[in-house]
Design a protein around this nucleic acid. Structure first.
Lengths: 211, 211
DNA sequence: TAGAAAATAACCCTTTTGTGTGATTGATGT
DNA sequence: ACATCAATCACACAAAAGGGTTATTTTCTA
């Protein structure tokens, strides 16, 4: 028997969800509130396995709720249930550790399936949400940031980012400091930079070093 | 009527999937191969709406396939169908733009639902996969990487990352070069680094500059 | 209002960087 | 066999970086 708590400020919707879950013989609703005020103590009181969390609530909203709960009880599953599908709120919730994200426009059965899914270790999301999440993994089209650095040059540049002086690089690579200078001179030219610090910044920002 | 192509080197499984899809009255299979050799021309030939793509295939594998197809036809949906659930391959595929990721251990109906889901603009994933994806959004607990840099110090460090020399920083901030030296000396101490390049690397890698 | 923290500045001195110029060797490819 | 390129080394020189020390002014706060 799984225990569910609900945080939702729309009374009708809250009742509906409560009924939906209550009618199941696997879940029971314990704790149903219209905001996340003092949520930690409420959670301690009800010991839910899953929390259904609206975002837009007066005073203490759902984002605050996720943060608080996940901070103290990372194992309690939280499913966001909201009308919002903007990136801002979505990724904020996910970064706080929300386990699922269901839009209210989906059928109520979606929400019910989501509960089973989080309990099974999944991450239920409305389809548009899942798509948006995957989209963030798309590699931003690199403007061919290939400066044709040779392997040796990359090696030396990497040592430079680690704070090695020219001399230390020479010792590390067992070459003379003169050669190190020569390599770095070439590197600076290829990267179109004037000095080591700029080269290091560019190398890290544009991920020029294969690590 | 939707057209599906299949790339899968296990003959039996390929036939099975083909049958499964063929038995639907909404989808038809056109193009069924055991590797992704010359995949672009094959795709041109069959004009599929969705591609079911295995990863582990001899010679030309599914990762290469995703890369090629998405490069030329970003609108064709690709669902990965594989036994692999390691992060390495998962995120590589997603970065190339895969639209779904279904594990072979899931029921075959999962795959069929996935086709409908991608066509509806979704991003079908096996539950464990979805969870892993969400996990990457969790804010990594910053080990209080606070070196107590003052605003001025951050400002100067930022200019350093832009390749400004001490003198240029002085001009930019309208302070003497001596003060710049003093600030940077303090900065190096606070960051526990020996030189500018290392400080720049640390600043960028640990996101010390609020931008 | 006294004290702390931050920002400012100067001087000295050594080491490091960065540039210009030139040269040799080995591998690679045509 | 010749050309190209990467990697190596050398010398000279100017500019910049970085450390030590000391000191003044501003700003903020207890």
């Amino acid at each position: 028997m799984m225990t569910i708590s609900i945080f939702e400020d729309n009374d009708k919707l809250r009742d509906l969800v409560e009924m939906l879950i209550g009618s199941s013989n696997e879940c029971v609703v314990s704790g149903s509130y219209s905001n996340t005020y003092d949520i930690v103590n409420k959670v301690i009181l009800h010991q839910p396995d899953v929390i259904i969390m609206d975002i837009d609530m007066p005073e203490h909203d759902g984002i605050e709720g996720v943060m608080q709960v996940k901070n103290f009880f990372p194992n309690i599953k939280i499913i966001m249930h909201t009308v919002f599908d903007d990136d801002e709120r979505l990724f904020t919730c996910l970064s706080y550790g929300a386990d699922g994200y269901i839009l209210k426009k989906d059928a109520p059965t979606h929400l019910f399936n989501a509960i089973k899914e989080v309990l099974a270790g999944g991450a239920p999301m409305s389809s548009g949400i899942a798509k948006r999440v995957l989209q963030t993994f798309r590699k931003v089209e690199k403007p061919s940031n290939n400066y044709h650095l040779t392997e040796r040059e990359k090696e030396i540049l990497e040592l430079l980012t680690k704070g090695f002086s020219y001399r230390m690089i020479g010792i590390e690579c067992t070459i003379s400091i003169e050669t190190v200078r020569r390599h770095l001179k070439n590197i600076y030219q290829k990267l179109h930079v004037q000095c080591g610090t700029e080269a290091v910044a560019k190398a890290i920002n544009e991920q020029l070093l294969d690590n």
